[in-house]
Design a binder for these strands. Structure first.
Lengths: 225, 225
DNA sequence: CAGGGTTTTTACAAAGTCGTGACAGGAACC
DNA sequence: GGTTCCTGTCACGACTTTGTAAAAACCCTG
C-alpha cells in the first residue's frame, strides 16, 4: 500500500508512529533529520509526508518549504506543539496541508493522513462504464447485466475499473496484481484467475466462451468492449 | 471554475491563500481593504468570500455585514483570531456562514470553503425530505414513518441530512465521519454502524433487511430512496 | 451535582470476502 | 501424438468486515 515518510527526531515518537501507520497497512520510512529526509524523499517519493516541526535547529520549517517547493502536490501533515502554530500565517506560508498539535490522538492523526492521501488521488475517473448489455456504475457500486442487477465485491470493482481504463490492451497477471492488488500484497496468479472467472460468470453471456474477458494464453488477459 | 474573493490585508497571508486556493482549481481575486473589496465584489461577484475579520480600522465586521445585506445568499467564510469569536453571537450577527480561528489548517479552510460553495449551489436546501412512507422535516426536527411520529436525536438528523444530499452514492464510513461528525472528532467506525442501526430500526419497515440504508460490504453505506 | 438522554466504546457473534491448493481440461510445442 | 506447461474451476479455511447489544462516557438541564 502507500508509503508514509515520517520525519521526527524523537526515537520514541518515531517508533510509535511507525507502529501506528503500519497497523493500518501503510509502509513507513523514517528519517531523523532534514538531510536524510530529503534524500529519502527524492529517491523514493512517499504518498504523504508526516513532519515534526520541531526538528533540531529549526530545520522543520525549512524542510517543509523545500518539500512543498520541489513537489507542490505532495501532501504534508505537520506535527507541532501548540505554541509553534499560534500564528495562523505560519502553516499557510509553509504550505503544509494539515497539522496536528501535540499531544495528539493517534486516531486523529490517522484520519488526517488518510484524508490527505485520498484527496491527492482524486483523478477524473468516469463513473459509468458500459459494454455490451452490461452497465457498471462506480459511484453506486452497482452492476447490471442484461437488465438484471449483479452483486459485485469491492475487489471485482477494482478489476472492472482497471479494465475500463485499460480496455483492448493485453495485461499480464503481474500487472493486474500490481495495479489492482497493490505493490504490497502479492497473492499468486491463481488468485487473478479466480477473480476473472467470477467476473465472467457474472457478466458474460456465456462464461464458457468469454467475449469480453479474453484470455491470452501465456501472457494474461485482454478486455474488449 | 469558481472564483473566490479573498479580503486580507497581510500580503504574506494573501499570497499563501492565493496559492492554496489556486492549487485546488479556484480562481482568486484579492483585496487588501474594504473599498476595493466592495468594488470587486460588485463588478464581478465571486462564488464565495473569504474575509479576514482583522482588517485595519475594524472594517472587517462592517464589510461582512454590508456584503450579507446586499446579497444574503453569498457565502462568507471568516478568518479570525480566537478572541474575536469568543462569543459566537457576533458571527451570527455578522451573518457569516462559517469561520476558521487562528491557527487553522489549510485543509480545514479549504474544506469549509468547499462546503460553503456546495451548500449554496443546492439552491433549495430542502427542508423536507421524503422516501417511502417516511417524512423528515428538518426545520421542525420531526420524523414520521408510516404516519407515526418517530423520535430522532440530533446526530441522527445530521446523518439523515447527509444522506438526503448524497442519496444513491456509496459513502465510506470515513466520509461520514468527516462530513457528519466534523473535522475534529474522530470516533471509530463502529460508532457509525451503531447510528445506522438505530436509524434502520426507526424508519425501515424491516430493519433486518434494510431497503434504504444499505450496507456495501467492504466499503460503507448507500442510501437509496 | 444528580438525573436522563445521547453518544461512544467495547465485545462478540454472524456474515461476507479473499487467497490458496488441487485437479482436470486445453493449448502450445516438438 | 505425446509431453509439458498454462488456465478454469471448485471447495475450503483464514481473515476481515459488519450487526447488535450492553456498558461506559459524555453532556446538558434543571
Amino acid at each position: 500500500m502507500d508509503k508514509i515518510l515520517v520525519i521526527e527526531d524523537d526515537r520514541a515518537v518515531q517508533r510509535a508512529l511507525k507502529r501506528l501507520f503500519e497497523s493500518e497497512g501503510y509502509s513507513v520510512e523514517s528519517s531523523f533529520d532534514g538531510p536524510t529526509a530529503l534524500e529519502a524523499f527524492r529517491t523514493s517519493p512517499p504518498a504523504v509526508v508526516v513532519l515534526d516541526l520541531r526538528l533540531p535547529g529549526m530545520a522543520g520549517k525549512d524542510l517543509c518549504r523545500e518539500i512543498k517547493q520541489s513537489s507542490p502536490d505532495m501532501p504534508v501533515v505537520v506535527l507541532s506543539a501548540a505554541a509553534d502554530v499560534a500564528d495562523k500565517v505560519l502553516l499557510l506560508e509553509l504550505g503544509a496541508d494539515d497539522y496536528v498539535t501535540k499531544p495528539f490522538s493517534p486516531r486523529e492523526l490517522l484520519a488526517r493522513v488518510n484524508v490527505a492521501i485520498r484527496h491527492n488521488r482524486r483523478t477524473s475517473v468516469p463513473e459509468m462504464f458500459c459494454f455490451d448489455d452490461v452497465v457498471v456504475d462506480f459511484t453506486r457500486m452497482e452492476v447490471t447485466a442484461a437488465g438484471r442487477s449483479v452483486a459485485c465485491t469491492p475487489q471485482e470493482f477494482k478489476i472492472l475499473r482497471f479494465f475500463a481504463a485499460n480496455a483492448e490492451r493485453v495485461v499480464s497477471r503481474e500487472e493486474l496484481l500490481n495495479e489492482v492488488w497493490g505493490y504490497q500484497a502479492y497473492p499468486t496468479t491463481r488468485t487473478v484467475d479466480n477473480h476473472i472467472m467470477r467476473l465472467r460468470q457474472k457478466v458474460e453471456k456465456n462464461p464458457a466462451s468469454p467475449v469480453h474477458f479474453r484470455t491470452v494464453h501465456g501472457v494474461g488477459y485482454r478486455f474488449v468492449k
